[in-house]
Design a protein around this nucleic acid. Structure first.
Length: 886
DNA sequence: TAAATCACG
DNA sequence: ACGTACGTGATTTAT
């Protein structure tokens, strides 16, 4: 027996609007971390969820209105006029509705000049009634006119989860007319919400009475003479045109020129990864925890198409050719330490899977890996390179990295999970690592080996397919140079830096640890004395109670959950609260102790006494690197106590030195270049102290000598503010001045540096126009919120539009310098080695007798890395430890 | 798992 | 009028 199919058609705008008002009381409570309101999305989500469970549709579509004008406006301009303006809090949620539907795997559609009703009406009418049962869902009663033998129309009653079904029978029962007569009723009675006029003095009751007698609007006019004389008859006669027009307006078009076919609407389940990402973005935590991912994954995995591969127990040379994908599987993130448990490689014809012992013992594999003519495509080149290097295998000629490419195409598409990256590029044939290996305590290699093998084989295929696709995309964006000449070569340089590692004097750290332990204990006792009780000093919550409740100090700032006890707050209490001094001391030292001393001691490689960080090349949205496990880009320097940590970073060879070179004011120089501002460029060209120079302009000082330290400090803050996409409030907070004063500084700055002002206006306009900004080297960052109706989101995007080309271009420049530096060091056969990168500086270890040469080389390479309209400047220092290279 | 805090550029 | 500086990662407490 053939079951009937079920088509569900949802009126997106109307249901979302209902959801918005149903949860209107929650409006301010329901916001995500970015301040986006989520009440309509939440309500809409729950409605869909209910519908999917209850109706179990085989086909489903959400239709949207397209724009504000429809074909109806062409014969009645005032159609839908006089509606109150759509609230911004609602419209800002609409774009995300599409994401939600994509997650659910539900097709959505809109058609220019037509309303959602018309799309729904056309589909509901045109599908074969012997095959399809149709359910229409809307918040708008007009749609009940679509009810038929096989079409039920559900209208929201209250909220969106409670629906009332309308069929031919119920409509007949309640109103005594057929669904199609609802149009006639509107023609007579009009509809205030759509501004459909109707005939004067005729309301729903009267209309129904007339229709029961005469059947339709036309029927009434055919029999108009038989009506007895009345005011109503007069109105009907006078307003015949209006009645016919009203009917026309209320009629849903069942022959709209839609381009979708019923087969496009097949519902084959949700895309869990997308849905989860949506929940995360919207902070729908209850939904996140409710998901039974394992069950879902299993179902999804079953839907994937079969993949064939060969399990290899003996490797032979004919298994390799000059164009293949390679994947090395490890369970843990840290590829410096994680065991390798499976390896796959292959091309479009054949995929091979093998256990690592077999691969590592194979000379054929090794020579293929190191063969220059053999091009390899991977996911995460650096990870692959390091993992093989640990086995003494040198891999060369990796010519594509889909992770790196994906990140360059959109910095947001940077998941460490291959399947997530694949899904972003509409490739669904590979499962998530989590669904195969589990997570947290359950993370493990599957008992059944074929599960792993199948998974790796799918990864190989995905790499093959996506390498071609993403390479095309890079070309379309003119980013191939960025990929081939900057990011990909850099990833191997970073790999070498990570593998080299940096030597750490653990004895020195342990000495410091003991010293600090004693001091911490002393301070702790002192604080307890002053507080009159013991408490956990590391708990901001407990500290808040002591400070602001027990001791009664004034509350200066609050956080989401209670009193703020951050430094700037404590500093304001310093004068009146002696205890605060000790708390600040404690905080400072506790930070050094836990993060830097204990933290670093934990990650020193026992064998080599070195630390091997991992540079994340696809995380930072601006193009910068980041550093993890441990983070070596935030080792203390500003305060002397913490700076001493750097004494523990030493050269790995006797008689060598640590050598550090940093770009001076690189971001402001980049700003000078991109803004082409005369004064700003001049300051750099003439080698002025940039902050003093700014102080002179902004405070109207004649000579550099007259700039006081305080003025320079303020000017420096202004310069920072400019780079960050300044606001009066931000600057006022930073400088502890009034907003008005801060605004004055900004105004004066823009007066003196009009080029900078123009740059900011231009870049924001360009971002609004194109939806993304670019660095000097075509690195892109998309700003989906730049045109948001939400002030917060839009303003944030505008500041990012200003900052990213500056921070990102500076990052590009240092990356170029690193590549050139690496090349030079090799060419010149120097022993000096690049160890670390910290955003605007490079740290090397170098034999004593190479220092001079290195110094000259660094200046040549870094200052000459790129040609800007302002000079680049580098400062270098060296010493026995990182501390002394200052 | 989130929030608060603080280290760096 | 709206509420805020840009980019990161690690540790701790609390839920």
């Amino acid at each position: 027996m053939n079951e009937k199919k079920k088509l569900v058609l949802i009126d997106g705008n109307s249901v979302a609007y209902r959801a918005f008002f149903a949860l209107h009381s929650q409006l301010e409570r329901m916001k995500n971390k970015n301040g986006l309101h989520t009440n309509a999305l939440y309500g809409f989500h729950n409605m869909i969820d209910n519908v999917l469970t209850k109706e179990k549709p085989t086909h489903i579509l959400v239709a949207f209105d397209a724009g504000n004008t429809t074909f109806r406006h062409s014969y009645f301009e005032a159609y839908k006029a006089g509606r109150s303006k759509t609230p911004g809090e609602f419209s800002e949620q609409m774009p995300y509705l599409r994401d939600l539907l994509d997650g659910f795997g539900i097709k959505h559609y809109e058609l220019k000049n037509f309303e959602a009703d018309d799309i729904i009406g056309t589909l509901a009418t045109q599908v074969d009634p012997t095959i399809y049962d149709v359910v229409v869902i809307s918040g708008d009663r007009d749609l009940t006119q679509l009810a038929k033998e096989n079409v039920r129309v559900d209208i929201t009653v209250k909220g969106v989860s409670e629906l009332k079904g309308h069929t031919i029978e119920t409509i007949q029962e309640e109103m005594g007319i057929s669904p199609l007569q609802i149009i006639d009723m509107k023609g007579l009675a009009g509809d205030a919400s759509d501004n459909i006029p109707g005939v004067t003095k005729i309301g729903e009751k009267t209309a129904l009475k007339l229709l029961k007698e005469y059947g339709s609007v036309e029927g009434i006019y055919e029999n108009i003479d038989s009506l007895k004389k009345s005011k109503m008859k007069e109105n009907l006669i006078n307003e015949k045109e209006i009645a016919l027009l009203s009917k026309k307006l209320a009629t849903i078009d069942t022959e709209a020129p839609i381009e979708i076919k019923i087969d496009d609407l097949i519902f084959s389940g949700s895309h869990m990864e997308k849905l989860i990402a949506f929940y995360r973005e919207m902070d729908f935590n209850s939904h996140l925890s409710k998901l039974d991912t394992s069950e879902y994954d299993a179902e999804q995995n079953n839907q994937k198409e079969e993949i064939s591969y060969k399990i290899v127990s003996e490797i032979t040379a004919d298994m390799f050719n000059d164009d293949m994908a390679l994947y090395v599987e490890m369970l843990e993130d840290n590829y410096h330490t994680s065991p390798i448990f499976c390896i796959g490689w292959g091309d479009d014809k054949q995929i091979y899977i093998a256990e690592p012992e077999i691969v590592f013992a194979s000379e054929d594999f090794k020579s293929w890996a190191s063969k220059a003519e053999a091009k390899k495509q991977v996911f995460d080149a650096k990870r692959t390179y390091v993992a093989l290097k640990r086995q003494n295998i040198d891999i060369t000629s990796i010519n594509f990295d889909i992770l790196l490419a994906s990140y360059l195409l959109n910095t947001k598409d940077n998941s460490k999970d291959l399947s997530e990256v694949a899904i972003e590029h509409d490739y669904y044939e590979v499962s998530s690592d989590e669904s195969v290996y589990g997570k947290g305590a359950k993370l493990a290699i599957p008992e059944e080996k074929s599960v792993t093998y199948d998974h790796i084989a799918r990864k190989i295929k995905a790499i093959r397919v996506l390498s071609k696709q993403l390479n095309d995309n890079l070309e379309e964006n003119e980013q191939t140079k960025l990929f081939n000449e900057m990011e990909l070569p850099l990833s191997f340089i970073l790999a070498d830096m990570e593998l080299t590692g940096v030597k750490v004097n653990d004895k020195r750290l342990m000495e410091m640890k003991e010293e600090f332990a004693i001091r911490l204990n002393d301070i702790e006792q002192r604080v307890y004395e002053l507080a009159g009780e013991k408490f956990n000093l590391n708990s901001p919550k407990q500290l808040g109670v002591i400070l602001f409740e027990k001791m009664g100090y004034p509350v200066i700032k609050k956080t989401k959950t209670g009193y703020s006890t951050a430094v700037d707050v404590l500093e304001q209490l310093r004068e009146q609260a002696p205890i605060v001094e000790h708390i600040l001391d404690y905080r400072q030292i506790a930070k050094i102790q836990s993060t830097y001393i204990e933290g670093l001691l934990k990650v020193i490689d026992k064998e080599t006494g070195k630390i091997h960080t991992r540079y994340m090349q696809t995380v930072a949205q601006t193009g910068r690197l980041s550093s993890v496990d441990p983070n070596l880009q935030n080792i203390p320097i500003r305060l002397e106590e913490g700076r001493k940590i750097r004494q523990a970073f030493i050269p790995s060879h006797e008689g060598w030195k640590i050598f550090a070179s940093d770009y001076s004011q690189i971001e402001l120089r980049v700003l000078g270049h991109v803004s082409n501002d005369t004064l700003l460029k001049e300051a750099f060209i003439e080698g002025q102290d940039i902050h003093s120079s700014t102080a002179m302009r902004v405070f109207g000082i004649a000579s550099p000598e007259e700039v006081s330290p305080e003025m320079r400090r303020r000017a420096k803050a202004v310069n920072f503010g400019i780079v960050y996409g300044i606001s009066d409030y931000g600057l006022s907070q930073n400088l502890g001045i009034s907003r008005k004063e801060a605004q004055q500084f900004i105004d004066t700055y823009f007066e003196k540096y009009p080029g900078v002002k123009t740059y900011m206006e231009d870049i924001v306009r360009e971002a609004k126009d194109k939806g993304f900004v670019e660095t000097l080297f075509q690195r892109r960052r998309y700003l989906p919120e730049i045109n948001s109706r939400n002030f917060n989101l839009r303003s944030f995007a505008e500041r990012i539009a200003i900052n990213t080309p500056i921070q990102g271009s500076a990052a590009d420049i240092l990356k170029i310098a690193m590549i050139k530096m690496d090349k030079k060091l090799k060419e010149l056969n120097m022993k000096a080695t690049m160890l670390l990168q910290v955003h605007d500086e490079l740290i090397f270890e170098v034999p004593e007798d190479e220092i001079e040469q290195l110094e000259a080389l660094v200046v040549e390479v870094m200052e000459g890395a790129v040609e800007l309209s302002v000079p680049l400047k580098v400062d270098s220092n060296s010493g026995k430890s990182w501390y002394e290279a200052k």
